[in-house]
Design a protein around this nucleic acid. Structure first.
Length: 510
RNA sequence: GGUCCGUUCGUCUAGGGGUUAGGACACCAGAUUUUCAUUCUGGUAACACGGGUUCGAUUCCCGUACGGACUACCA
């Protein structure tokens, strides 16, 4: 079998869409599974849509996601350059070849001419309104104008495009790995522009020429390309490359969470979740779009989630490392129907991966947050806090957000708990407990519990009755992680002083 | 409008001529937890519709409906 060569070929028109990340992932998985090569090609043939920073963003996003590039932009390789704008002369050559063989032609129509043609066809109720077999004879091109005239126009520098001369009545067949055989009549395909008037190729030409030259074996891309795939087949045939044609796999689309249609940035904004892997600031509007990374998603969780949007291993296992994904992945198991993007599932994956981390790994996140706030904390204490908090977090930032009371003594207290539980009995136990804690130099969670039980028992009160008040007094909140462990982490001095503060400041509610 | 693609619980999906149509997320309930969260157990919930083919169709075929993509000198 030929070594597998796949490419991810985004165009640098902005941040990389999450659907693009999935496309890149599937390409990568196939390459890794068979020891093939993953290529990054930048399709920047539309200079009007070029966005500065987009290429760098794409590279950084893929790296963050763990999708490694073997060959391509930012990496180099035997087929360099991998940026299509730098390969302009190559396409020019191939387009000329097609012209010479009578498989393509020059067209001099102005935008106005094309507009007029479309309006005319519309009026005539033509079945399809396209520049092709039925219309090219009436247009201003090298098929209708004499060779001498064409030469004259060209020499005069008149603006032109090169169009593919689509053959008449031919059935174009395409074997898609996901959808099976797709057949389209060539009469449905229009004479697509191959070279634009600025001398750049269109996607169609560049894509076919590059895939051929770069010896791509599998083209895995979004379903939005399916309608133009027959045109690409025609191009391979025109060049006589049908035997070197890659296999196609058109991926189901990522859909909006509610309703229907392609997932867009607008939907993500509305529903309040990211759609880009990394933060992206639009260079024009300066508007910031939040990324999955900055929103607290772990790359391995995002990847796992994305892998399952349109693919599944056929087993009941759901948690897959990137390594396990490459082993399990097959194109055959990619589904046909579009998948709605459900951020809940992504959150669940994130939670799974986050909680699978060790206390010391988790402590790293906490320490980072603390450092940003200029709060001192030892590694050991951070780990203990993480042990207490690990079942209550979905994102790395949650650790600090939900454990602030470890670092700041509460000054306000849960009103409901005061109203319901702050009474004479509670005050009695709390004062006695404080006095006992003051005598201790340190306190383990076991000691904290034992002491509390003893104190409460000596007053003839059940410890259970005041636990919630105790929690409120220590953390300010009505709920939280294991209280005795919290006391251990805080220490006897700190706990006693918090009790002191509460005893002096809390007034019973009527 | 035309071309192409698609359709199993709310969502992601497994399955496939005869199944109690399976799992996961979400949701609901119970248990554990002194709280909340976790965890555990249980539950609600799906083959778009109509015709064939067949002893039998959710599964195969054809239509219909619905949805989507594409229809630029954008990718």
């Amino acid at each position: 079998m030929k070594p597998i060569r796949v490419r991810f070929a985004p165009s640098p028109t902005g941040a990389l869409h999450i659907g693009g990340v999935r496309t890149a992932l599937y390409n990568f998985l196939l390459a890794r599974k068979y020891g093939g090569t993953m290529i990054l090609r930048i399709e920047d043939t539309d200079q009007t849509r070029f966005v500065p920073g987009a290429e760098e963003y794409i590279i950084e996003a893929l790296a963050w996601a763990g999708i490694e590039i073997d060959e391509g932009v930012g990496k180099g390789g035997p087929h360099a350059p991998y940026r299509q704008s730098e390969r302009k002369h190559i396409y020019q050559k191939y387009a000329q070849q097609l012209i010479a063989e009578g498989k393509a032609y020059y067209a001099f129509d102005t935008e106005q001419d094309l507009e007029t043609m479309r309006e005319r066809l519309k009026k005539e109720d033509a079945i399809n309104q396209q520049y092709g077999i039925s219309t090219r004879g009436q247009m201003n091109n090298s098929l209708t104008v004499s060779a001498a005239e064409v030469k004259q126009k060209l020499d005069a520098g008149e603006s032109y495009v090169i169009r593919l001369k689509v053959p008449a009545d031919q059935s174009v067949e395409l074997m898609d790995l996901i959808r099976g055989q797709v057949v389209v009549s060539s009469s449905q395909i229009d004479d697509k522009v191959l070279m634009k008037s600025d001398g750049m190729p269109t996607y169609h030409l560049a894509n076919v020429v590059d895939d051929y030259l770069m010896q791509i074996t599998h083209v895995i891309r979004g379903e939005e390309w399916l309608p133009s795939a027959p045109l690409h087949v025609l191009l391979y045939q025109a060049f006589g490359w049908q035997n070197a044609m890659p296999q196609f796999a058109h991926l189901p689309l990522l859909l909006k969470p509610d309703g229907n249609g392609k997932l867009s940035k607008r939907d993500a904004d509305q529903m309040g979740f990211p759609i880009f892997p990394l933060n992206w600031t639009d260079p024009k509007t300066k508007e910031l779009a939040k990324g999955f990374r900055e929103s607290g998603y772990l790359p391995e969780a995002l990847i796992n989630f994305l892998a399952f949007l349109g693919w599944n291993p056929g087993t009941e296992q759901e948690i897959f490392s990137l390594q396990q994904l490459t082993e399990a992945f097959t194109v055959e198991r990619i589904g046909k129907a579009g998948a709605k993007f459900d951020i809940h599932k992504a959150q669940w994956f994130n939670q799974q991966y986050l909680r699978a981390k060790s206390d010391s790994e988790l402590a790293g996140y906490l320490l980072q947050s603390l450092q940003n706030q200029k709060i001192e904390c030892s590694q050991a204490k951070a780990e203990k806090i993480c042990r207490a908090m690990r079942q209550r977090i979905n994102y790395p930032d949650d650790i600090f957000e939900n454990s602030k009371f470890f670092f700041f003594a509460p000054t306000t207290f849960d009103e409901q708990v005061i109203a319901k539980k702050w009474n004479e009995e509670a005050v009695k136990v709390l004062s006695a407990y404080r006095d006992e804690l003051k005598k201790m130099s340190e306190v383990s969670s076991e000691a904290a519990k034992a002491t509390l039980d003893t104190v409460a028992a000596s007053l003839g009160i059940g410890a259970g009755k005041i636990l919630q008040v105790l929690r409120m007094v220590i953390t300010g909140q009505g709920s939280g992680p294991d209280l005795m462990l919290t006391i251990e982490i805080l220490g006897s001095d700190e706990t006693a002083s918090r009790l002191d503060y509460a005893l002096k400041n809390i007034q019973p509610k009527k």
